[in-house]
């Protein structure tokens, strides 16, 4: 299977509660995919399954084409899948520079270095020695994305990146993600913000009650249709 990440009939959840029911999707190199849905439909559970937080009851998860039976917290990152978690996960006692440096855990070679991230987000260079949590919400999101890029990922996963951000900041983020996608980085966007999805994703999957109820290409679907799908 030539994919970066694939879910095949995945059933997963927490404790004995199953949240996802037979979810399947595939992300090929260079693709931009969005998983849409309202709160509580299981979007973040999909990410947590990949990160080994949620319990995998049934189905298979393929990372870089390999069926991965033992999903640990670090498995995805080491395989070239960087995750920007919901809430950004900035390490509180570290500076901006230190947060970024820690992003390069897997020592994967590639385009992204500290200098490149500072070129992408000059504000991070200006505040390199500030505590990461002293940044504004938008800047923290830049830091979280920059740190993920430091891993030189093949796939960048973003869980609700627009949460709590002003529209102008979301516009800037969309622009950056488009550029990353154009440069060949695959993107998995877990989102409710349809404007961001429309601008970034080529393919969408709509989740409802833990199941994929609709999928297709964003170019063939209007925002109104997406909204209708989510409302199902």
């Amino acid at each position: 299977m030539n994919s970066l990440l694939a879910f095949e009939n995945v059933e997963s959840g927490y404790g004995n509660a199953r949240i996802l029911h037979g979810v399947s999707f595939v992300i090929a190199p260079g693709e931009s995919v969005a998983i849409l849905g309202r709160n509580g439909v299981g979007k973040s559970t999909a990410v947590n399954t990949m990160l080994g937080i949620a319990r995998l009851f049934a189905g298979d998860v393929y990372i870089q084409g390999r069926r991965t039976t033992s999903l640990r917290h670090y498995t995805a990152a080491r395989a070239g899948i960087a995750v920007v978690v919901q809430g950004r996960g900035i390490l509180p006692n570290l500076t901006v520079r230190e947060n970024l440096i820690l992003g390069g855990a897997a020592n994967r070679r590639g385009h992204w270095t500290l200098e490149r991230v500072f070129e992408l987000y000059p504000v991070l260079a200006e505040r390199a020695n500030s505590a990461g949590t002293a940044l504004s919400g938008g800047q923290q999101q830049m830091l979280a994305i920059g740190r993920a890029l430091m891993a030189n990922p093949d796939l960048l996963v973003l869980d609700e990146p627009s949460e709590g951000l002003a529209p102008v900041i979301i516009d800037e983020m969309a622009e950056v993600l488009r550029r990353l996608s154009a440069d060949g980085t695959a993107i998995l966007l877990i989102e409710q913000n349809l404007t961001l999805v429309e601008r970034v994703a080529d393919i969408f999957h709509v989740l409802s009650k833990g199941r994929v109820v609709e999928h297709g290409r964003t170019e063939h679907t209007s925002a109104a249709d997406l909204q209708k799908h989510i409302a199902i």
Binding site: Y74, V83, G89, L91, L94, I101, L102, A106
Partner: peptide
């Protein structure tokens, strides 16, 4: 050192550091 940086980060949020790819 970079190792000290890592251990401080683990102290602050071990799970987050694992997500970054560290054991």
């Amino acid at each position: 050192s970079r190792y000290g940086l890592l251990s401080e980060a683990i102290r602050d949020n071990e799970e987050r550091v694992r997500f970054l790819g560290y054991r």
